[in-house]
Design a protein around this nucleic acid. Structure first.
Lengths: 340, 340
DNA sequence: CTGAAAGCGCTTACAG
DNA sequence: CTGAAAGCGCTTACAG
């Protein structure tokens, strides 16, 4: 069954396409009789205006692109969900593309989205992305852009982030307030700003409370993997027998550390407290369950879409756009892997 | 910066739009000189043919819709990933929509996708979907359809599934072969076919090995939640003191059962073996890690897209389409929550 | 109140 | 070798 067009309706009713179109769009200069006839027939034939034709004419697609490093990932799948739900609410559809943390893929995917003529693009940068000319390209082509979580300070666009430094500070301070005195940090790789900020927040807290903040308490996890967590837990315990807590770049690393402790009968949090970051789904299921920082992915996705929409509509009204940076609040979730 | 059009190129070069178009598309009836001039200018101005115009003309969008019950979910996020990766490989983009297991949402989302004129739709049904007229509507509108995992036998389209009954049989038999004699099943709600099939596979295995397969060993989890797992573990142990294994509808329920055992110092697998289903990411992280059935989401997503593509291309060549049902193999993953 | 015309950006059968 | 014309399906300023 082919899609019904205005032309067909016009032919059946022996009127012009113009009139048929007007009748459906509540133009006042159509006789009630014609209006009714057109509407009834449209209803009967299940007429749906062809979106592609509308897009071509209106130069908008009511579609946005979402470019994200991963999808099989608790935080990012929440982000995607937030974007999709909010977009649908406002009549927009979302094309999802996964860079798999690859700069090359990300670059190509930006092209795909641009060629597709989406109305706007939401980007969370791949871990391996250093050069950001492809992102600048988005702005140059006049397409709206909002970055979230993995952002670049070199791009002049709206950004949706959490305050990683403050969140890490809060998490570390909770460990301190629960009585921990020697706290290691398993940080992420050096590139991403989030890694750096979480490290700085950790350091801030130690310094504020005058605890040992020497660099030999900091371990850099290359792969941010379960295995890394196990390995550094082993190493940290050997290098610092008096260690009583660790704070990790993300829950997965914390989970590895926790596994190591379980297998080696090291009491958590008796001997050592473990604090993760991100509040992955898994954190609540482990034994003991993991204390962590809740990173509200769904909310970030929602707000990112809303910001993009705002800019799309400002542009339509020819108003000027002022990029904003919106910080979404985080909170520390205390569970069983820390004291108190 | 506005997008460059063929018209602009033609004007600059003082040729017709027709010729410009042909030059870019390797029509042989264009002089080499013109061809070169057009190509160079197009390159220089970074000309990209307007996809929307092409879509309108070619009546295809190189875009498909993916309608899925959940996204913050290990299996489904893998499915989505598989679809997106394979689609991108073949020049297709994917619009993702989440029904959140709601029939109402699913119905509306099918409309959205149809109105968008996607070339095809991949559907995994919402848990609450009983009436499937909206799915039939897809076929009626001449849009290609492939269903995956949560399918409906009433729809005549290609389907990508696992053999739930066989998978459940295999999992249960592993428990039996490891020496378990009294095995309970925490099944899912009665609606979905997967629930039923997993129950039947469990029953098949018990009967084959002449073990107790009475109905009082079967508990129906309404919410398929962590809490359900805890609760039925408690109940099952009270009702069957000699219980030595459980097989659950999905890993989350198994995780709840495991938590219950941990908290109540019930040895796993010493006293009781626990077998989940789906191989969620979390299964490998728990202590003890969970034995389960691997449900290859990524592969299912890939194959689903490939099947859809095949049908799209068959149609283009006016060949006839024969719906296929493709069964993706599963395997039992033995970890620490079961014996041997 | 109705409809012919122009246009969104492209392609292609056809005439010259 | 080049380009005017028709067309994909719609909308809207304009003439009648």
């Amino acid at each position: 069954m082919q899609d019904v067009t205005l032309k067909q309706i016009a032919e059946i009713l022996n009127i012009s396409i113009t009139t048929a179109s007007k009748a459906l769009k509540d133009y006042k200069d159509v006789s009630p009789k014609t209006r009714i006839a057109v509407r009834n027939l449209a209803e009967k034939l299940n007429f749906k205006p062809n979106t592609t034709a509308l897009n071509l004419r209106n130069k908008e697609s009511k579609t946005i692109g979402l470019l994200i490093p991963e999808i099989v990932h608790h935080f990012f799948s929440n982000v995607i969900n937030g974007v999709i739900v909010e977009a649908e609410e406002h009549g927009y559809l979302v094309i999802v593309l996964i860079s798999n943390d690859s700069y090359e893929l990300e670059k190509r995917q930006v092209e795909l989205l641009l060629d597709k003529r989406v109305d706007g693009i939401l980007v969370s940068l791949a871990g391996s992305t250093i050069n950001i000319d492809h992102i600048k390209q988005i702005l140059k082509r006049g397409v709206h852009l909002v970055m979230l979580d993995k952002i670049s300070t070199e791009i002049n666009c709206s950004k949706i982030i959490i305050d990683d430094r403050k969140a890490a500070f809060d998490a570390t301070e909770k460990l301190i307030l629960s009585g921990c005195k020697k706290i290691a940090h398993f940080k992420g790789p050096d590139g991403p700003k989030t890694s750096l900020d979480r490290y700085l927040g950790y350091k801030d807290a130690l310094e504020k409370h005058k605890l040992d903040s020497s660099l030999n308490l900091v371990y850099t996890s290359k792969n941010v993997s379960l295995e890394d967590g196990r390995q550094y837990m082993d190493q940290a315990l050997r290098e610092h027998p008096d260690l009583d807590a660790i704070f990790t770049i993300t829950d997965l690393v914390a989970a590895g550390a926790l596994q190591y402790c379980q297998e080696n009968k090291i009491a958590v949090p008796g001997k050592i407290s473990i604090m993760g970051f991100s509040n992955w789904f898994v954190s609540g299921l482990m034994t003991p369950s993991l204390s962590t920082v809740d990173q509200p992915g769904f909310e970030m996705g929602r707000v990112a879409f809303l910001q993009l929409l705002k800019e799309i509509e400002l542009k339509k009204n020819e108003a000027s756009i002022h990029p904003e940076t919106i910080v979404i609040p985080t909170s520390v979730v205390l569970r069983q892997s820390t004291k108190n």
